[in-house]
């Protein structure tokens, strides 16, 4: 069982706002879905599955970057070539 507090905590971790009114809805739905997922409890944990592929690499060769305009074209109010973000301090 997850509680409203669990859902609120996960919302903080996932950086997604959730209204108080939605908390009840999500909590109920999550419990129904997680109940369904409990079928996995009976799956035996084996060793690591053999990977389907391994050692995929590229050579250390420079590929042209985007133009400065292309980098900034989808950003809001760039400044002096920088991309603007909300304050962190």
């Amino acid at each position: 069982m997850v509680s409203k507090e669990d859902v609120a905590h996960i919302a903080t971790i996932a950086d997604i706002g959730v209204d108080e009114s939605e908390l009840d809805l999500f909590t109920g739905q999550f419990n129904a879905i997680l109940d369904y997922f409990d079928v996995l409890d009976s799956v035996p944990i084996g060793g690591d599955a053999a990977p389907l592929r391994k050692n995929v690499f590229r050579d250390d060769e420079v590929v042209p970057s985007l133009s400065h305009d292309e980098v900034l074209m989808n950003a809001t109010d760039p400044e002096d070539g920088f991309i603007r973000a909300p304050r962190v301090i």
Binding site: V63, P64, S65, L66, H68, V71, L72, D80, G81, F82, I83
Partner: peptide, 12 residues
């Protein structure tokens, strides 16, 4: 070089 001049879709 200036900011955001060595950037492609992947590292952006």
């Amino acid at each position: 070089d200036g900011p955001n001049t060595h950037v492609c879709p992947i590292c952006l």
